[in-house]
C-alpha cells in the first residue's frame, strides 16, 4: 500500500501541493485527475524522489519510502524521454540494470517486454528512428522492464492510438491483478472512469475528492430520468420533487432525501404511459466539473470510506 500523508510543496510563492493525503491499495488502479498545473506531476515526482516535499511523508508498506523502494517503481514521466541515439534494446537493458537487475535478467526482461508491447523488431534501432507510437511503447517498456512493485504513470495515455490505449490498459489491469498497484494521471476522464478502481481529484494543489466513482456520486442527491408523459406537470404535484429539465417526453427530476422514488413513479404513471424510469448516473466528467468548480470551503469530504 502506498500512503501519501500530508504532502506539501511550494515553488517560491506558488503552492503546488497543499497537505495532500490519500492512499493506493494493493492491486488497485488509482486514477489521478485535475487540470493542468493542479499538482499531479509534482506529486508523482515527489513519490519518485525526483523532487523533495516541503512537508509530509510518502510510505510504502508502512515504511518511509527510500531509494531502494523507489528503484522498485515503474515510472513514466510526463516529459517523455529516452536517449535518442541509443538502441532500443541497449537502452532498456541499461535502464533495467540501473533499477538493480543483474545483466542476464535484464536481457531476459527486455526480450519479454519488447515482445509483449509489440516492438521486438525495433530492438536494434535507435530510439529517434522510431515512430511516435512506438517510442511510447518503448517508454512503457522502460517503466515495466524491471518488474516493478508499483507503477507511477504520468499521462500514460496521451498520444496513444486506440489500439495502444487498449494494450496499455490491458497491461495496467493485468499488473493490478498480480497485486501491483498503479497510480496514473489522465485528462481522458471517460478512460479514467472505465479503468480506475478509485479516483482522486486534485485542484490547486488540494485533494478535493478521493474514492471510487460510486463513492464520488454518493454525495449527490438522487436524480431520476423519466420518459413518457409529454408534460412535466405531473411532477409539480409531488412534494419534494424539483424538475431539472424537460424536453419532449424526457423529464429529469431531483428528489430530496425525504421523497420516495416509488411515489415519483406512481405520479408519472398517473400522467400517462412510462417507457423509461432510471436513476441518472453522472459521468466522471460532470462530477469532476462539480468538484473542481466548488468553492474551496465547500470541499466534499469523501476521503476514504
Amino acid at each position: 500500500m502506498l500512503e501519501i500523508g500530508g504532502v506539501s510543496k511550494r515553488y517560491g510563492n506558488v503552492v503546488a501541493l497543499d497537505d495532500v493525503t490519500f492512499e493506493v491499495r494493493p492491486g488497485e488502479i488509482f486514477g489521478f485527475v485535475g487540470s493542468n498545473g493542479a499538482g499531479k506531476t509534482t506529486l508523482m515526482r515527489i513519490v519518485l524522489g525526483v523532487l523533495h516535499a516541503d512537508k509530509g511523508t510518502v510510505r510504502w508498506q508502512g515504511e518511509e519510502i527510500d531509494a531502494d523502494v523507489r528503484r522498485r517503481i515503474g515510472y513514466m514521466p510526463e516529459e517523455r524521454g529516452l536517449y535518442p541515439k541509443m538502441k532500443v534494446g541497449e537502452q532498456l537493458e541499461y535502464l533495467a540494470e540501473l533499477h538493480g537487475l543483474p545483466r542476464a535478467q535484464a536481457r531476459e526482461a527486455v526480450k519479454e517486454w519488447t515482445e509483449r508491447l509489440n516492438v521486438p523488431k525495433r530492438m536494434g534501432d535507435e530510439v529517434q528512428k522510431l515512430s511516435l507510437g512506438n517510442q511510447q511503447r518503448v517508454q512503457l517498456a522502460a517503466a515495466l522492464v524491471h518488474g516493478p512493485d508499483l507503477l507511477v504513470l504520468d499521462e500514460p495515455f496521451s498520444g496513444l492510438d486506440p489500439v495502444a490505449v487498449d494494450v496499455m490498459s490491458g497491461v495496467l489491469r493485468e499488473k493490478a491483478e498480480s497485486g501491483v498497484p498503479a497510480i496514473f494521471s489522465s485528462h481522458q476522464l471517460d478512460l479514467v472512469e472505465r479503468i480506475s478502481d478509485r479516483i482522486g481529484i486534485i485542484a490547486n494543489g488540494k485533494m478535493v475528492a478521493v474514492g471510487s466513482v460510486e463513492e464520488l456520486r454518493s454525495g449527490d442527491a438522487d436524480v431520476i430520468d423519466v420518459a413518457g408523459p409529454r408534460s412535466a406537470d405531473w411532477a409539480k404535484a409531488v412534494p419534494g420533487l424539483t424538475v431539472l429539465s424537460h424536453e419532449g417526453e424526457h423529464t429529469r427530476v431531483e428528489l430530496d432525501t425525504e421523497t420516495d422514488d416509488q411515489a415519483v413513479l406512481q405520479a408519472a404513471l398517473a400522467a400517462g404511459p412510462v417507457h423509461e424510469f432510471s436513476r441518472y448516473r453522472p459521468a466522471l466528467t460532470e462530477l469532476y466539473r462539480d468538484v473542481v468548480s466548488a468553492p474551496a470551503q465547500d470541499t466534499r469530504e469523501l476521503v476514504t470510506a
Binding site: 516529459e79 529516452l82 535518442p84 535502464l95
Partner: peptide, 17 residues
C-alpha cells in the same frame, strides 16, 4: 545537455542520485 533536452534525465534521477 543531451540528457536534459531529451528529458531522459527524469527517468535516470528516479533511480540514481
Amino acid at each position: 545537455v543531451e540528457e536534459k533536452s531529451s528529458r531522459v534525465i527524469e527517468l535516470l534521477l528516479a533511480t540514481v542520485k
